[in-house]
């Protein structure tokens, strides 16, 4: 299974990359765990998680080709 992970705003300062392809993950918790292992600084950051452009509240099961996004607090306008 392949999932796309998008990174925005100040989180991108940590990862340096705006997009990742992650394989063999079942849910959003696994994605976050993996991201935290590679980028420990992320653990300190506040952000929301969106799956397929919808904000999720808790751990969410993923399907092939889903897009997961890590969204720090919005500051548009």
């Amino acid at each position: 299974m392949k999932v796309k992970v998008l990174i925005f705003g100040q989180l991108k300062d940590i990862t340096q990359s705006a997009s990742f392809e992650v394989t063999d993950v079942n849910d959003t918790n696994e994605i976050i765990e993996r991201m935290n292992n590679v980028y420990p600084e992320l653990k300190k950051m506040k952000y929301l998680v969106a799956v397929e452009k919808e904000i999720i509240q808790g751990n969410t099961i993923l399907r092939d080709n889903f897009t997961v996004a890590l969204l720090p607090p919005y500051s548009g306008g």
Binding site: G9, Q10, A69, P72, Y74, S75, G76, G77
Partner: peptide, 26 residues
């Protein structure tokens, strides 16, 4: 306007005169 500021996934990066920056907070 209120909803746009609160609900749209948009991020502003404030750029300073010395080329440093700070992420904007709404």
């Amino acid at each position: 306007v209120e909803r746009i500021k609160k609900e749209l996934p948009v991020w502003g990066k404030e750029l300073f005169d010395d080329e440093s920056y700070k992420w904007k907070v709404n």
